[in-house]
Design a protein around this nucleic acid. Structure first.
Lengths: 218, 218, 218, 218
DNA sequence: TATGAATGAGGCTTCATTCAT
DNA sequence: GATGAATGAAGCCTCATTCAT
């Protein structure tokens, strides 16, 4: 998996028809990612996307039923990249520590794939169906993690329903913070440390057992 | 202050020039609130708003520089109504309890002014400047509250910067939850209890001192 | 009533808003008549019509909901002009003679308003709703005439249902003949005499009493 | 001759190059008949036709110069089927009777090959050149018949030119009537009796000698 | 100040046809 | 001959904004 696909056809060898076809679709996809990331969904006209992709406007409709269909595929696809990315960055420390790692990794991912910020944030209104899909992808996985932690004894006193609410709060908080602290004139910047520490305090004390909290100052 | 403005010109039948002028602007404003609340910013065309307001399209531009200007005024204005509403619902109990009251009051407000949901949620992308203004309004007030609580000794170990981050997390969480749990087929519904309890647990344990937590089951 | 509206605004005096509005709509209408008459419905794009009318494309939609709406109004409107025209050309001779007069007048009208030919002929497929309206306008009036003639004793042995079929045959025959004999490289020409005489013979012998037939050679 | 061509390649499994070629063309042809018959010429895109035929779009242009060329071949081909069909249904009774038979057989054919209705009716505007060809095919044959009848003494007083006009009237009447009475929600239905009787009366009295008229009630 | 018709750029999508494989 | 992706022109319609009355 790469979230930074090569900007040129993978091989120098001649591509067969199937490969050329996939490659064109890929080009459109990447162009859309770029355009939406930079200008937002609203400004991501088919004309702009195809121009960026270097294909004719008509070509677009050989690969996607409609502009909306493409838009709805954008977030879920990159969202999965994000999940992989975060998973790779999560160690084997104790539960609270891992949650902080996930929190940090999320912001790291945003810096790696700056387009993700807008693609994620605006999706709710411009690609609702894609947004829902992403939501499900994420929250299901997240709740599963929390349940496992509870099973391991590091959390108690939270019901399944409450887990779901907590997960939504986490996601909401991250989104909000990312918008607040990560946008900048040109590009995406790191999140300030005090955001991380505030999150750590809130989470470790509020969600997990009182064991540590300050065992892992960074 | 009313967040439910009268639908007819104030009492007297004869209005002078200034009053008529203000009244027209007010009509447009209310129409916009209605339209955006119902259809969202994207569908809030000048034509639709003026039709709803019962004035000609041209009239719009006698009162607002552009469509965007009006849109950017929408959220900050209603946002202030919200602040008042929440303040009125917050008692004099101890700090943690008050925070739960604010959380609940937020969701109550949404049910009182259902348009607020979309006006708030979509503002970030369709009325960024108005959104920023609202954000500042809210977070400044919120941080001030937290500082006061810290001064009173109910919170410690959080810096000013961390307060700001916490406030943003709260706002993000609320927004997310309101979208997730409050929307429904026709109108806005109450938030389920488990959302409230999850919030209470997270907040009381994570933010405030360990004194209470279960002293105020509802 | 005129089926040849002036190509310039009716008066030199300044027009008020209502008049200007009507005048613009009229311009679009006439442009459409011209364009459809010359190129057919299929080629009558909004761009072409508005260009012919000398207005912007957007203006079109201030006066018509859609391209189709205008197209559907074309035939019924001109169709009424035709009815008037034919009525004015029908004398007070006996019934069979009058029918021939109507037949001839129809072809005369086509020469007066050459656009009518295509507007009528293609309407069935490109403006079905307008076509139906026209059909009703015409066939109702026609059947009424035949019934009156039957009452006067000049026709017998035809039932009401059969009248309706007869009328449709007449209309179909006229349409067919007009297409066959009236089109020409540039413009519309008169129908040859033998078409008229053939029609006369068929009708007078087939529909009316055997009295005359050759009393009115032309 | 069949107007209902087999849906599978003729018997043998192995076709040589020439046969395969012809078979592909035939498939496209039948697909076009089906599509135009069902959706009309305007909706008969090359994509739709080739899909229906089960071949690639490009294949189309190996067999036809352009979409229009195929469209123009449709009517003349099926038109010949119709001539055969009608001829087979025409007995050896006296002339007037035979004309009624032809009239009825026309409507019978429409029910056998329902696609013919649209292919015929819309051809004038969507396949003018094909339409003209069909027109010539039919009217020449028809005029020949009338001349023969005149020679046999059953008609007199009509010139050759008038015959041609008469034939066009007949064709127009039939087309009109078929559209009026034969279309229905799902499929093509029989023409009501009063249409037949009206036609019989008009024709027998108007065209033929006064001998019979009621000698052949059906 | 109120009106509302006029403007014209720009958006999405369709489709006949071409052409490299 | 068969394939089907690529092309790009053209079509219909929306909408914020302007301006003469």
């Amino acid at each position: 998996m790469t979230h930074r696909p090569a900007a040129a056809p993978p091989k120098v060898t001649k591509l067969n028809r199937v490969e050329r076809n996939a490659w064109t679709k890929q080009k459109i996809f990447e162009a859309a990612t770029k355009v939406v990331g930079k200008y937002g969904y609203a400004e991501a006209s088919v004309a702009r996307i195809t121009e960026e992709a270097g294909v004719a406007q008509g070509t677009f409709y050989n690969h996607f039923e409609s502009r909306q269909e493409l838009l709805d595929q954008l977030l879920p696809k990159i969202g999965l990249d994000m999940v992989q990315f975060i998973r790779a960055r999560t160690g084997t420390a104790h539960a609270a520590r891992q949650e902080i790692e996930r929190f940090s990794a999320f912001f790291d991912f945003i810096r790696e794939v700056p387009e993700f910020l807008r693609i994620l944030n605006e999706a709710e209104f411009f690609a609702p169906s894609g947004y829902q899909k992403h939501l499900d992808n994420i929250s299901i996985a997240y709740v599963r993690i929390l349940k496992r932690v509870r099973l391991a004894g590091a959390i108690d006193d939270y019901s399944d329903d409450e887990f779901e609410a907590i997960v939504h709060m986490f996601m909401g908080a991250r989104g909000y913070l990312s918008r607040r602290y990560s946008y900048s004139a040109d590009g995406v910047t790191a999140v300030p440390d005090h955001v991380i520490t505030a999150y750590r305090k809130l989470i470790t004390r509020g969600l997990f057992h009182r064991s540590g909290d300050n065992d892992d100052e960074r």
